[in-house]
């Protein structure tokens, strides 16, 4: 039980200290990467929408 206790304390301490970095990219630099992720998601959504519309119109053009 003792080792568990000490390790949980260590865990708490490591959360307080920013020194340990584990896939911290999305939390660094004021979490700007989250904004980038959001904007890229929107852009890819719009792109997908336009792409499918483009294809649909292309099909209609071929048919007529």
């Amino acid at each position: 039980m003792n080792w568990l206790h000490t390790s949980s304390i260590q865990l708490l301490q490591s959360a307080a200290k920013p020194a340990v970095s584990m896939a911290e990219l999305m939390r660094s630099d004021g979490r700007i990467y989250v904004v980038i992720g959001v904007m890229l998601t929107i852009l890819s959504g719009i792109t997908l929408y336009l792409y499918r519309l483009d294809k649909k119109i292309g099909k209609l053009e071929k048919r007529s």
Partner: peptide, 11 residues
Amino acid sequence: LLAYTIIAGLL
């Protein structure tokens, strides 16, 4: 170019 704009524009 837009993807580049978002990434480079914010970083």
